[in-house]
Design a protein around this nucleic acid. Structure first.
Length: 890
RNA sequence: GGGCGGUUGGCGCAGUGGAAGCGCAUCUCGUUUACACCGAGAGGGUCACAGGUUCGAAUCCUGUACCGCCUACCA
């Protein structure tokens, strides 16, 4: 078969992937004879397009899946997408805006219909892109968090938790995004320090004794003063004892404010007096509750001021701030303005500054759910890689807050709560007239009225994705919907759950990972996965996080187009040291491309040798190894062993590196070079064996080229065909007999000598010049046997054996050497020797000193002392040899 | 404010107590018919700083500085 001089991934990737699909390589089924290995994909947003973060995360998963598949496990990689409430709604809203429409114009039902249309058309974009990457997901199982079966799980869970008393509704200060007009969880709001001001505002008072004065409060948000209902002071603050009984008046509005004492107040901040706005600040809210203050909401849901804001009504919050500051300045009520860095929360979707807002929301009580999830990690039932995340996880879980799960948007699972129009009173805390049910109740359970309204809110997206590891298996097995498939679904969950490994970025450790663990225990009574692998963040070459808005992204599809999917995958795995961030630039992908090309050419070379020689390959078992064969097979054994170990420890970079070094440097640079001049049947078999084994080792990381190579080998060496499959197991180490192990050792010495010869030639100014080699050796046979490749690799014309050498240029315990060249430029040679000598003297001195040190002899372990003695004597021998050499030329 | 990491050649990283390593970049040499997406070589680091433990520290302990990330209600 003709192979081009360069590997061209474009020619093969698509057809190879199609072959996998048609052969059903990725499909998983319950197979009691095999141990399952399961990964559920972190479902990308339906709106998503593949970025480097996905490429990294999903390659990692594919490596694990393919590795375990080769190892004979029944592997399932469950794919799917997440409906991503706000993100998706934003996309469709934008599309609508192009037609000059708002979602309110077409109404909820029509809008949701449009969302479904959108998801049907574009929802599988990212999944198709994953196929380009080579992802071996079982596509027949693709799930979506708003599938009927999945939605059933979400509602089921809501009802169960409600009935258990773990879901409640309450008034709360929540993070409100005035642009998305929805509540955001703490995790969805990102805090950022920005330059702001601290305004010191004077509030007029009349003291108990009738004196007209003013007090000063400091605030970063002057506009909220319109909603002030109190002034708070620390009870221990002596400076303000006189304030008791004073009448405090809120400027502009004229409202009388109460004075309350609370120890949350830090006397050292500002003036020690705080304006209290219970409806617009979380701390103030808690003070408001404690002292039963009035909650005055001054804003609309889009952060414009409302009826309670007097003349500022209708104004945007920031315009109102300016206006209020201007008005106060005119009235001489601003004492001073200080520069102050404030930490403002921002919407993680649109970056709008969040407004703390009082509203009625649904919550999940998290403390009861957290218990088992903490214990599982403490007991190492679930392990983190790298394990430092364990501490981070535990720290968060131990301080967990209740989870606000309602969202004021239209795209998502609608909250299964119904209100009776007759007997439900939204103002009362009573649950009369509230019905929680997966299906709409026909009439009110309390009064029997039939006018029933469903809660308009939908559930937080994470409230569906936290069920991902089991809801994707069609839990809770709705018999009506599943029909006869019911039992199969149940047995699949039983077989594949708990899943094995979850890989993710650290950003969603709390959003998602922690909650999946809680859901796993609450609904399955078991962990959702055993290992959590947390990889780093993808950054550009300057270390800045890649993001679309910064325009510093590298599109994985471009990389695939330019270098191939394998190049992308290999480079990513090589760079992604476990848990540390990945710095990327276009050049970084050259490593992967070059490596694939190296593989391609090594194979091309070996196959051409086989085709051009009379070698007939009848079986794959090599019989008559020589030293170089034994040497490379020994290296292969270690590579197999190491790759195995590294993949299991999730150290993909070490696995990739091992394969790279072994194949490139050991196999190509040494073994293939030696067989160029001594090709025979054993060599052909050995080379093929190494290639086939390496293809299997590398297949999880670079599936396309390795698959192609096995195809090509099968076509060229037809007898090998039955051995060339990725399903017949992981390569086995080859047992080597003792005498072969000895030959392996002498091969290593010969290689060492060749390196020395090359160095000496350069030092002697001989460069690449071919010279004769004079050898004085005990073991002439060894040199004779390997003569052809020794000549080629050392750049020699011939080898002459002598019993004694007048001049010695290289010497070790086995042989000494000289070149058949008359006069030599020995200056550089001597300098190089001297450098080696002085270096060894230094080390030798250190060792001597150590061995003379009584403390060392007394305290260090016997093995260490013996080891150091051995080292010392070796170095002395070496030193002796070098000194002799050097003296001979002086 | 609290927590967790990091600091090793120009850059990116390995290295869990016994002679400082790897990849990229740099430099020199090479038209050796698998590969220039190649081969053979070379240079380059007092392992952030200060103490301590130890016969011995890049490695363990304490502190300092700087850099990240997460978390938090100083208005």
């Amino acid at each position: 078969m003709e192979m081009s001089p360069q590997y061209n991934p474009k020619e093969t990737e698509q057809s190879t992937y199609d072959k996998w699909l048609s052969e059903g390589t990725f499909s998983a089924k319950v197979n009691k004879g095999k141990k399952p290995f399961t990964i559920v994909i972190p479902p990308p947003n339906v709106t998503g397009v593949l970025h480097m973060g996905h490429a990294l995360n999903d390659t990692l998963q594919d490596v694990l899946i393919r590795y375990n598949r080769i190892k004979g496990r029944e592997t399932l990689w469950m794919p799917g997408t997440d409906h991503a409430g706000i993100a998706t709604q934003n996309v469709v809203e934008k599309a609508l805006a192009k037609e000059g429409l708002k979602k309110e114009d077409i109404g909820r039902d029509k809008f949701v219909e449009k969302l479904w249309d959108w998801q049907k058309e574009y929802g599988s974009t990212i999944l198709n892109q994953l196929k380009k990457l080579g992802a071996s997901c079982d596509w027949s199982r693709t799930r979506f968090t708003m599938d009927d079966d999945y939605s059933d799980a979400v509602l089921d869970v809501f009802v169960k938790l409600y009935n258990k008393g773990l879901i409640y509704r309450g008034n709360y200060i929540i993070n409100w995004c005035p642009r998305c007009k929805t509540a955001l969880s703490d995790e969805e709001s990102q805090h950022r320090q920005v330059d702001g001001n601290l305004w010191y505002i004077k509030y007029p008072i009349v003291t108990a004794s009738g004196e007209n004065k003013h007090i000063v409060v400091a605030t970063t948000r002057p506009e909220t003063m319109l909603g002030d209902t109190a002034i708070a002071v620390n009870p221990n603050d002596e400076r303000y004892k006189w304030l008791k009984g004073a009448k405090i008046t809120l400027p502009i509005i004229g409202r009388t404010l109460r004075l309350v004492e609370d120890d949350q107040i830090d006397p050292s901040f500002g003036t020690g007096l705080v304006k209290v706005t219970p409806a617009h600040d979380p701390v103030d809210f808690s003070i408001g509750k404690k002292f039963d203050l009035e909650f005055i909401n001054i804003m609309n849901d889009d952060a414009t001021m409302n009826d309670n804001a007097a003349e500022y009504k209708g104004m945007d919050r920031f315009k109102a701030r300016d206006a209020i500051v201007k008005c106060l300045t005119e009235k001489d009520l601003i004492e001073k303005i200080e520069k102050y860095e404030v930490s403002a929360g921002r919407c993680y979707r649109c970056d709008t500054v969040i407004e703390p807002r009082l509203s009625l929301q649904w919550f999940v009580k998290m403390k009861p759910l957290a218990g088992p999830a903490i214990q599982a990690v403490v007991d190492d039932k679930i392990k983190f890689y790298p394990d430092r995340w364990k501490k981070v996880y535990l720290n968060w879980m131990e301080n967990i807050q209740d989870w606000c799960i309602s969202r004021q948007i239209w795209w998502g699972h609608r909250i299964p709560v119904y209100y009776c129009s007759k007997c439900y009173d939204s103002m009362s805390q009573s649950s009369i007239g509230i019905m929680v049910s997966k299906v709409r109740p026909e009439k009110c359970a309390a009064c029997g009225a039939t006018e029933i309204v469903q809660d308009p809110d939908v559930l937080d997206t994470w409230f569906s994705s936290w069920l991902w590891p089991f809801a994707t298996f069609k839990w809770p097995f709705n018999k009506e919907r599943l029909g006869s498939g019911y039992q199969q679904a149940e047995s699949e969950l039983k077989y594949f759950y708990p899943t094995d490994t979850l890989t993710t970025a650290s950003e969603i450790l709390f959003f998602w990972v922690a909650r999946m663990i809680m859901a796993g225990y609450e609904f399955m009574g078991d962990i959702p996965f055993k290992d959590v692998v947390i990889h780093g963040t993808v950054r550009d070459s300057k270390g800045i996080k890649m993001s679309k808005s910064l325009g510093n992204t590298i599109d994985p599809l471009d990389v695939i187009d330019k270098f191939g999917a394998d190049a992308l995958r290999f480079s990513l795995m090589l760079l992604a040291a476990s848990g540390s961030d990945v710095f990327l630039s276009d050049e970084k992908f050259l490593v992967g491309r070059n490596f694939c090309n190296k593989i391609w050419n090594a194979v091309r070379f070996v196959l051409s040798k086989i085709e051009n020689s009379a070698v007939e390959l009848t079986d794959i078992e090599p019989s008559a190894y020589d030293g170089t064969d034994a040497w490379i097979l020994g290296k292969l054994n270690s590579a197999i062993n190491d790759v195995d170990k590294f993949v299991q420890a999730y150290r993909m970079n070490d696995a990739a590196k091992t394969i790279y070094e072994f194949f490139w440097h050991d196999f190509c640079d040494w073994y293939l070079e030696t067989i160029k001049n001594s090709f025979n049947q054993t060599k052909a078999k050995t080379a093929l064996r190494v290639i086939v084994s390496t293809m299997k080792l590398a297949h999880p990381i670079i599936p396309f080229i390795t698959d192609k190579i096995l195809d090509i080998i099968g076509d060229t060496v037809v007898a090998l065909k039955p051995y060339l499959s990725f399903t017949d197991g992981w390569p086995e180490e080859i047992e080597l007999t003792d005498d072969i192990l000895d030959e392996r050792q002498s091969t290593e010495s010969l290689f060492e000598t060749i390196r020395a010869i090359r160095n000496i030639k350069i030092d002697l100014g001989l460069g690449n010049k071919k010279t004769g080699l004079k050898v004085c050796a005990n073991n002439k046979k060894l040199w004779k046997k390997n003569e052809t490749w020794l000549l080629a690799l050392s750049g020699s014309t011939d080898i002459m054996f002598a019993d004694e050498l007048k001049r010695v240029l290289y010497k070790n315990e086995l042989w000494s050497l000289d070149f058949s060249v008359g006069e030599l430029e020995t200056e550089n040679f001597l300098a190089s020797l001297d450098k080696k000598i002085s270096n060894l003297m230094r080390v030798s001195g250190q060792l001597e000193k150590r061995l003379r040190n009584e403390g060392f002899i007394k305290n260090a372990s016997k093995e260490i002392v013996a080891q150091e003695k051995e080292k010392s004597s070796q170095i002395k021998d070496e030193l002796q040899r070098l000194k002799e050499l050097s003296n001979a030329f002086k």
